[in-house]
């Protein structure tokens, strides 16, 4: 008779694998990718393809030739980083910018720490922030690009907002000494428009509904817990609401704050990155609140119009502390000297 296997329990394994989880994230990102392709056309496709290909290539090359071990690109995590990086770029960005971003994201933010699971900061965000700081003009150039179906958006106020995100317009306007009501009067920022699809913004943040569909998918598949995104949303809403009540002419209303910029993309896909988010639910809530607060602080009092990336990166640094001090609720009282 052939030899039996003997091993410690448990003898069966659940269906989840790193690869299946990453595939679920990619599926959840599909609506946002589709909207950006539909809306930004060829330039969005270029960004996405360049992002994915260069991230996977960089990871493969580093593991194969520098770390000299079996490449783990099959786990699909580099693909997720590539997509997220591409979705965080302005649609008019040149392809080589994405390649530089990928090298920084995978090479510096991920591989130098030891690869998947070891990195302290979200690779896609490190890539994006690196580009934002190094190529500020290219990274804030929200020039209009040709949509795939040119006729589809002719009704929108394309000319009125060409070139800048709503947040940048607000920041610029406030800088000129205008009041918010004046700015809003000049521009068409209806919530409905922002909810479904709007013009200014990076590839992934143009449609709130597409991102929310992805969020729902992740929750249904139990890929992420809702704590981090909900904590961020609630904090942004409450904190910006307080500021708005204090001075509606100086601070934008909470709904505007929620729907603009990268809040949705960041909260749903970047802040919930497994590796760089806390392990316990208590930690997750604190982490989410931190991101929300920092985002609004940067938006309303900092010099950048947008603060989600910085907020998430800052909170990434706090995660080890949160893991150390926010322990899950244990079962049963502890008995001393038991």
């Amino acid at each position: 008779m052939k030899n039996l296997i003997v091993s410690p329990s448990p003898h069966i394994h659940g269906p989840k694998s790193t690869r299946s989880l990453m595939t679920d994230v990619i599926i959840a990102l599909a609506p946002a990718m589709l909207v950006s392709v539909w809306y930004f056309g060829v330039s969005a496709i270029t960004l996405l393809v360049t992002g994915v290909v260069s991230c996977v290539a960089v990871e493969y090359l580093i593991q194969r030739f520098l770390m000299k071990k079996e490449p783990s690109v099959k786990d699909c995590s580099a693909i997720v980083t590539g997509i997220l990086l591409a979705l965080n770029m302005p649609p008019a960005a040149p392809w080589w910018l994405v390649v530089i971003g990928s090298v920084v994201a995978i090479g510096i933010a991920k591989m130098t720490f030891g690869g998947i699971g070891q990195n302290l900061f979200n690779p896609a965000l490190v890539g994006r922030v690196f580009l934002l700081v190094s190529f500020p003009v290219l990274m804030t150039n929200y020039a209009q690009v040709d949509p795939l179906f040119p006729g589809a958006f002719s009704g929108h106020a394309v000319d009125a907002v060409s070139g800048a995100t709503p947040l940048a317009i607000v920041k610029e306007g406030l800088g000129k000494g205008m009041t918010l009501s004046q700015i809003f009067a000049e521009n068409d920022f209806s919530s409905a428009q922002m909810f479904f699809v709007r013009i200014g913004g990076s590839a992934g943040e143009v449609s709130a509904i597409a991102l929310l569909i992805g969020f729902a998918y992740l929750l249904v598949r139990k890929v992420i817990k809702p704590h981090i995104p909900l904590a961020i949303f609630a904090t942004v809403f409450v904190f910006s609401g307080i500021l708005w009540l204090a001075d509606p002419e100086r601070y934008a209303d909470p709904l505007f704050n929620l729907l603009t910029g990268g809040i949705l993309l960041g909260a749903i896909f970047m802040a919930t990155d497994y590796v760089t988010s806390p392990m316990s639910t208590k930690g997750m809530v604190i982490y989410g609140i931190g991101i929300g607060m920092l985002t609004i602080l940067i938006r309303d009092f900092g010099s950048y119009p947008e603060g989600v990336s910085f907020a998430i990166l800052i909170m990434n640094a706090v995660v080890p502390l949160l893991n150390m001090y926010c322990k899950p609720k244990r079962f049963g009282k502890e008995v001393k000297n038991g």
């Binding site: 989880l21 497994y274 806390p278 316990s280 609720k329």
Partner: peptide, 24 residues
């Protein structure tokens, strides 16, 4: 019953959510 090949912990906290004793 075969065990999966082991790869890096991705800190997904699945085990923390699965532990019925609230351990990590």
């Amino acid at each position: 019953t075969a065990r999966r090949p082991e790869s890096n912990c991705i800190r997904c906290a699945s085990c923390v959510s699965a532990c019925p004793m609230g351990l990590e």
